[in-house]
Nucleic acid binder design. Structure first.
Lengths: 251, 251
DNA sequence: CGCACGGTTGAAGACTGTCAAATCTAGTGG
DNA sequence: CCACTAGATTTGACAGTCTTCAACCGTGCG
């Protein structure tokens, strides 16, 4: 997602014998949060920290049975479902976020998850995680919280969907992106979007050309700079205000 | 939601001393699913089955601290967030569905939940539920599944958002509604929409007039009948096919 | 029976989608 | 190291859909 900040994540990269949860810098964002240190060690038993994907590589196919959940350690993913003949992007997964949770309800994945760039993730074996959770209730609680958070972030986009201009949707998307990156402890000074205009368009329900135009117009704001896939966030608060003003005007 | 079918749910109505989980017909859809019968009795201790709302009554205000989750026993609710000055509907809650889960992540509700019609629900005290879940791990698991399912159903609408006509979105909305009602064991022969055109418009990101027009056009299909707030689903399979054809044509 | 609200219908204008072509970038190979 | 190529992004023009603003119904309620 971010070049410069990728370096800042290096301590999360797997060592030659795999990364241990307790030493992972994602700790407070991930499953271990709120779990006793002694218990975190047990997590290592259910987590495979060495899963890496190349750009475009498929993590899991739609319809596949639920075997694992994943936490993005670095990089980014997209989840898409097939509707008719066309693929529809339903979610992006950024560092620190949970992927694959849509399968918990029905036992099968409802979307194909694919890497948008070279990515590293932790695979959490579902059955074992549940088993461990039965013994460490806080783990279940933590998973619930992560799920709630992941699902809620989908509302952010839809919350700006009401007949509002494409510009507002794109702005909301960028803002959400920035906030999620910051939540992961990453810098947003110089962001390189890992998703194509097509992906964004699909996700937002717009035509790629419209996204492109909106990006250009939005980039004219003082608090934001957009040049192709490079985005610089200068002032998030001003950005929020701009979005707020955009949607509020429609009364 | 449905007049005729409301009667079918009557056994779920609270008796004079409150309904017990083990005798509730929602059982297999609700928290007790997969939980041992003996343990279900414990659920009664954390559930207040007598919560009833009048039409328009607010269940919980945006920003309120998380104290309980709710399961819709009968009736229906809408969840809306304020964006600028305008309210934006982010979800509808139908019988058998979980409401309020958006607060699990941050400890505060992210949407105001309001009854669309006279409704009955079960309030599940969150702290106590967690405590009980710690002793009955399957309860936590069940909650995870419900959460996953609830969140995923939001994808259904967004999955048809990509530049597709308003007609397709409305159709997807109606279909999703029908499927969820059937999942709750309700009949969809004669449905009375509890939400206004404005609510639907807000939810789908369209203008109310556009929703109205789309409803009329969609009602011309053989498999569906729409007259104001009354909807008759004649053939769900044909409906699915119609939607499929509508979205697939746009390739 | 009349009122009030929600829903439907109509017309005009704005915005977005579509198709097509020009540009730019990044990656490749010389 | 530089030129080149393939793919992605941007730009332009036009048609179509959606939004907006109004007016009109029709139902449900007082």
């Amino acid at each position: 997602m971010i070049r410069s900040s990728a370096a800042a994540r290096d301590d999360a990269a797997p060592g030659r014998e795999g990364l241990r949860c307790r030493r992972c810098c994602l700790g407070s964002l991930c499953l271990p949060a709120g779990v006793q240190p002694a218990e975190v060690a047990l997590l290592d038993g259910v987590v495979d920290t060495r899963r890496e994907l190349a750009e475009g590589e498929v993590l899991v196919e739609e319809g596949a049975p639920l075997r694992a959940l994943w936490v993005v350690r670095s990089g980014s993913l997209k989840a898409e479902t097939r509707w008719g003949g066309r693929a529809q992007v339903v979610a992006f997964h950024l560092p620190g976020e949970l992927a694959g949770w849509d399968a918990i309800a029905g036992g099968r994945h409802r979307a194909t998850i694919r890497a948008l760039e070279p990515s590293a993730l932790c695979a959490v074996r579902y059955q074992r995680l549940m088993g461990l959770g039965d013994r460490i209730p806080r783990l279940h609680r933590r998973l619930l919280a992560m799920l709630s958070g992941a699902a809620r972030c989908d509302w952010v986009v839809s919350a700006v969907g009401a007949g509002v201009q494409a510009e507002a949707r794109v702005l909301a998307f960028l803002l959400s992106l920035a906030e999620r990156l910051m939540a992961a402890g990453l810098s947003v000074d110089e962001v390189r979007l890992s998703m194509s205009r097509d992906d964004i368009a699909s996700y937002l329900g717009l035509a790629p050309e419209t996204v492109s135009r909106a990006m250009v117009r939005v980039g004219r704001l003082d608090c934001l700079e957009v040049r192709r896939r490079r985005v610089r966030f200068h002032d998030l608060e001003a950005l929020r205000a701009a979005l707020h003003a955009m949607t509020a005007s429609r009364f």
